[in-house]
Design a protein around this nucleic acid. Structure first.
Lengths: 206, 206
DNA sequence: GCTTGAAATGAACACTTGTTCAGATACTGT
DNA sequence: ACAGTATCTGAACAAGTGTTCATTTCAAGC
């Protein structure tokens, strides 16, 4: 046997990436062998090297594609004018988007150490871009005296960690709908950063 | 050569656990070989099996010991009477304790999938005990009309994720002291769950 | 000082790892 | 119908995997 009937790189290529993504997320990068990926695709291990130069690059490409999708997704969210509403929009987008791509997110937060320095740097830059978008919302709100944030950088990280936490426990068939989770979380985030009414009144008056 | 001069199981044993903890945290369980651990300890791979029946048990023992330390640590925190102060005490304890044991926390949140079902269940029970302690604070505050929480279980998870996030970015030599980070985080947590003054007044009046 | 047992070696086991490649097969364009 | 190329196999490679064990060495108790 050699080439299979109906085989095509447009089919096998995505299959490889899909299988790798799923298996890496489930067992971790180091714990998944090329032969396991190949078996999942329905092909011999050697064939994988038509679609990736090596295992590490396969991981990097998955991570890279994911971060690009996140940034593109956020760019497509039409942002309201008020910082409070912007923050809610961000929180809702983050939760929904990340829930739809659990596997990729899992890998992004766990397997970065398997990358070499250069690849890591590229991904880290993209991640910082995303976090900056949130920080800009906080800064805008701070300047408009709508938010009362001690440190915008720290608060950015805190919010993102909190939102990411949804991944670790949320189950689509669970007690709460995703929409309800989005609502509760964005409410909490809002309360955590919004300025107290009394303080704002004093500031506006003064 | 065989036995080394000055060698003792009271010395090598802890060394093995220490090295395993550090290496697992840095590279991941699957990516670390017994020979790497042995080299780090300064011993041959075979000698490790005097201190653990196998690699998986070594991981499990590390995780188990960590969770026990977390629960013991929390038990030793003397809790104030007011829920607001209790919440702050919890947040401060969580951040400080987890920062002091970064490696163990990293493993706890990343390598659970490498455990078999029985071991996983035992650890999961301990983790739920810890989370329950936080939820009880939220429930108490809720009943005292000091907190305004939509869903105590979800809020518990949200708070813990947020606090855990500190681990991913905090550097002891960075811009902020650990004490300041604790303050900012516990303030944010407090604001996120506390009941608005107006609402509380209305409730007390009504 | 000698025996006893703990602590460690180092070689061996059977298997898996990522990766390469000559050869075989199926599809595509002419 | 045929040539050419894209796709895949299957075997091979050297290195590394977790684990076992007979053997050796050191340290402590009598």
């Amino acid at each position: 046997m050699a080439r299979k009937t109906g085989s095509h790189s447009d089919i096998t290529g995505p299959k490889v990436r899909e299988a790798a993504l799923r298996l890496f997320a489930e067992h971790g990068f180091a714990a998944v062998s090329m032969r396991q990926i190949a078996k999942d695709v329905g092909v011999q291990a050697g064939a994988l090297y038509l679609y990736t130069p090596d295992k590490q690059t396969l991981l990097f490409d998955l991570l890279c594609e994911h971060m690009r999708a996140v940034l593109d997704g956020l760019a497509e969210v039409e942002m309201p004018s008020s910082p409070v509403a912007q923050l809610e929009a961000f929180a809702r987008f983050h939760i929904r988007f990340h829930m739809e791509r659990r596997d990729a997110v899992f890998i992004s937060y766990m397997e970065l150490s398997n990358l070499d320095a250069a690849n890591f740097a590229r991904l880290d830059a993209m991640r910082r871009d995303y976090e900056s978008a949130l920080e800009r919302i906080l800064i805008t709100g701070q300047e408009a005296h709508e938010f009362d944030v001690d440190d915008t950088k720290l608060t950015t990280m805190a919010i993102i960690s909190m939102l990411n936490g949804v991944l670790t426990w949320y189950r689509p068939d669970g007690r709460l709908s995703l929409d309800r989770v989005e609502t509760i979380y964005s409410d909490m985030v809002g309360k955590a950063v919004r300025m107290a009414r009394a303080k704002r009144a004093a500031l506006v008056a003064g």
